[in-house]
Write a protein that binds this DNA or RNA. Structure first.
Length: 568
RNA sequence: UGGGGGAUCGUCUAGCGGUAGGACGCCGGCCUUUGGAGCCGGCUACCUAGGUUCGAUUCCUAGUCCCCCAGCCA
């Protein structure tokens, strides 16, 4: 039973669902739901919930997963978000198969359920102020006290609730509360609020209503109305579960869903809370909700991350009840793994250093054959122009090469990818700054790529771009949003102080091979030896703009780092 | 000090009374016209203390530590 029969690894929720199904609970049906409030954009934490809910439905014969907008708070919600959320869920590769709902569609039914509760004496209109209600609620260690209005007659409650609904009262004057137990050790059971007055226009129902149900009332009933069998949510709702069950039972709702909680996703070196994301956007600390530094799905998409990578990540991290913080490197691993298989390779020089091949004829241009993707032979080959002057990466030359540096240095040889072995003859320096401005090299005509007669080995192969054929580009490199080891600032301190001021690195004057000239926004490439990049929508016909999705693993960077770190 | 949850390699995660497995990461090697990819090998983990049992990560007891809850947010 617990052996995985699909591509999905199991987890305790899948196990519970399988057990219920085997036992014929809910008639053997499995219906889950993803219930966002349309008050913000989705992020990778939501992706975990989406993958879980839709994944279970997908893997269960006859299983369904609904998309439901929990839009019970008119003051925070916006249709822009309902659109964006649908796009994001679809982009991730999931399909609600027409089962898209809104809690606001249930306002009539919810209202009727509230009346049922009032009639049963299980709900009452409270006329305490918000402050008074808080005072009566007690504390974590002290029980609450009954409101003086708790004993109102059913008739009065019915009348008052009708007048609340009719708009006779201002915001906050009355509230409908469940009559449960003000002494409960579970604060959620101390007569929770079911309805509040809000004279606000709802983006879907307009001004038809001026009372709105709370989450604790609307959510379980929405689940029940839709016939949800397994209502999956995050851990912080664990002690709402008794209330969830109470609402479903006391209203006599026709169906009893089961709430199951799991730990939300946390990732290192980024922020996931709605509040912090919003703050970053509003204070213009990032460029918008789709800033590629953000873990929003829009941001990840713009950065070049694929939905396949996100799904693989979600699958791998599992679902459990213990709080966990997943290392960003794990996400990066799945991004690289996916991009490695699918990305065409091209050559691009991020920080160009001009190279003149002194013994190469000036007027000649050769078209060299380059492999598009060594992981995928069917991707074929392309021609890359080679000429006497070209650009290589500044990092690929060292005037005074350290140990284990295999690249170019005075008197040293290196292979130009798909081309010749060249030897560095001299380096020209800026007399002012001492910076290397130009390299002079010679090439060995015998060593052209593909010529078999000579099998000379060199330690390194470097990428390059022919100078006269180069296409200009701007490239954006992204670094962690947060400074390392700053995750735990004192709570009273401004968290934005832990932001990495260098999270965005803008490179201009980059050069890329000419095959990229007309690359479309969104297209992804591996820049050989550098990383995975995608064309940003900011690209224009004049300037190509690339985002680095993720770097390639860099063995030399590691060596260099350990060389610099003195032994202890 | 109320209630609800949770503790397994550095980080995630499996385990359901019978040699603690996998992934990421890290270290080393092989291979390589990407210091990429791939391949091979290695890496001080069951919170503590008792108990039950032939045998405990698993069951029991008592602790310890961590997370959540006092919105008319979700």
């Amino acid at each position: 039973m617990s052996t995985p029969e699909s591509s999905h690894s199991s987890n305790f929720i899948r196990d519970l669902v399988a057990i219920d199904r085997a036992a014929g609970k809910h008639g053997g049906r499995v219906v889950t739901r993803f219930p966002p409030e349309p008050n913000g954009y989705l992020h990778i934490g939501h992706a975990k919930a989406i993958a879980l809910n839709f994944g279970i439905a997908q893997d269960t014969p006859g299983g369904m997963c609904h998309l439901r907008f929990d839009d019970t708070n008119p003051t925070t919600e916006d249709p822009e978000y309902v659109q964006a959320i649908q796009e994001d869920v679809r982009w991730l590769g999931f399909d609600w198969r027409g089962k898209m709902f809104y809690a606001s569609d249930y306002f009539d039914q919810l209202d009727a359920f509230a009346v049922i509760l009032i009639r049963k004496g299980k709900a009452y209109v409270d006329s305490l102020t918000a402050d008074e209600i808080r005072e009566h609620r007690g504390t974590l260690t002290e029980p609450g006290r009954d409101s003086p209005f708790r004993t109102r007659s059913i008739e009065d409650n019915l009348d008052l609730f009708a007048r609340m609904r009719a708009g006779e009262f201002a915001d906050g004057v009355h509230v409908l509360r469940a009559k449960i137990d003000m002494g409960s050790p579970n604060i959620n059971l101390r007569d929770p609020i079911l309805y509040r007055i809000r004279h606000a226009s709802h983006y879907r129902t307009g001004t038809a209503w001026c009372i709105y149900p709370s989450y604790d009332f609307a959510h379980p009933l929405s689940d029940a109305i839709e016939g949800i069998t397994h209502s999956l949510c995050t851990l912080e709702f664990e002690d709402h579960r008794p209330l969830y069950d109470w609402v479903v039972a006391e209203t006599g709702a026709p169906h009893r869903p089961q709430q199951i909680e799991f730990a939300r996703l946390n990732l290192t070196s980024t922020v996931m809370s709605k509040r912090k994301l919003l703050e970053l956007v509003e204070k213009k600390l990032v460029t918008g909700w789709d800033d590629p530094r953000l873990p929003t799905l829009k941001g990840l998409r713009r950065r070049g991350v694929t939905p396949e990578a996100i799904r693989a990540f979600c699958e791998h991290i599992g679902v459990a009840k213990r709080d966990a913080i997943i290392e960003m490197q794990l996400l990066e691993h799945f991004i690289r793994e996916d991009l490695n298989k699918r990305s065409p390779r091209v050559m691009a020089v991020l920080r160009p250093l001009k190279v003149v091949i002194d013994n190469y004829p000036e007027s000649v241009v050769e078209e060299l054959d380059a492999v598009n993707n060594p992981e995928n032979a069917s991707a074929g080959t392309r021609k890359v122009p080679f000429s006497r002057t070209l650009y290589i990466e500044q990092d690929d030359f060292r005037e005074d090469p350290p140990k284990q540096f295999y690249r170019l240095a005075p008197g040293r040889e290196v292979r130009l990818r798909y081309g010749y072995i060249i030897k560095c003859v001299s380096a020209t320096k800026d007399p002012q700054t001492g910076a290397i401005t130009e390299l002079h090299c010679t090439y060995d005509v015998e060593t052209r790529s593909g010529f078999v007669q000579e099998q000379r080995k060199v330690k390194a192969t470097i990428h390059w771009v022919s100078a006269p054929h180069a296409t200009q580009a701007a490239i954006r490199l992204y670094h962690p949003l947060l400074l390392p080891d700053q995750a735990k600032l004192p709570a009273d301190q401004d968290w934005t102080r832990s932001l990495n001021p260098q999270s965005l690195e803008l490179l201009s004057g980059c050069v890329v091979e000419p095959s990229l000239r007309s690359a479309a926004p969104g297209s992804r490439f591996q820049f050989e030896r550098q990383g995975y990049f995608c064309v940003d929508p900011d690209s224009s016909s004049e300037t190509l703009v690339f985002n680095r999705t993720v770097s390639l693993k860099d063995a030399w960077a590691k060596i260099e780092k350990t060389q610099q770190a003195p032994q202890r």
